[in-house]
Amino acid sequence: MAWQWFHQWGSPRWFYQRSGAWLPWLAVLAALFLAVGSVWGLALAPADFKQGNSYRIIYLHVPASFLALAGYYLMAIAGAIGLIWKMKLAFTAMRCAATVGAALTFVALFTGAVWGKPTWGTYWVWDARITSMLVLLFLYLGVIALYQAFDRQELASKAAALLALVGTVNVPIIYKSVDWWYTLHQPASLKITGDSTLHSSMLQPLLVMIVGFYLFYAVALLLSMRAEVLAREANSSWVRALVTAPQSRERG
């Protein structure tokens, strides 16, 4: 009985109906937080004493990097749940998290390079932080590629989940790389314990952006999973009913 809340996630139909109800709320909240955070961070927050306005890339770079790392754990845990409980929806979540995570990792690397040129004097340097972040991108792409390489979905899911699990070791390495080794990348300004070295007038919009990115991530993941669920369950009666009677979509 206690496991019922968990096992209902095994039903793609249940997921499709519930996620349809959550999506509008999540989308509105995400848009709100991102809009407020962008205007606050990009226009209203003060310029930095050394970097001037170029520091503002932090409002994209830091949230994207956060979600790229957190999203990897989500993908790996989804893969583990799929392996242990043979839950198809968990594999769907893993596959979709790989795409969203790869995109966010790319955003983090790209914005970092754009900021690096005026600040450091170079777009790219092979230090521990940047290199391990590139490895993260390759891990995400590897999960996608491995999944696509098999014809049988079950085999594809298992293989991709194993790669996702092995890759989890990279996440703490990325996070701690700036403390463990000498790198060009600076240590984190945002500290979980202790004072952040980011002035409060700059920190507040950043926190708004991070919440906005989390919400945006949820929206992107759910949208992608819903599309994947429909494709996988294309032959089931409930999807057919959905297609033949589109007006009853939200009520299911």
């Binding site: 003060p46 930095d48 050394k50 004097g121 600076q186 300004s189 980011l198 007038s201």
Partner: peptide, 18 residues
């Protein structure tokens, strides 16, 4: 042959720095 600036993790407005 190349000199790069290593920025630290401190961010603040100019008035605060002053």
């Amino acid at each position: 042959s190349e000199v790069l600036a290593k920025h630290d993790e401190t961010y603040m407005p100019p008035e605060v720095a002053e």
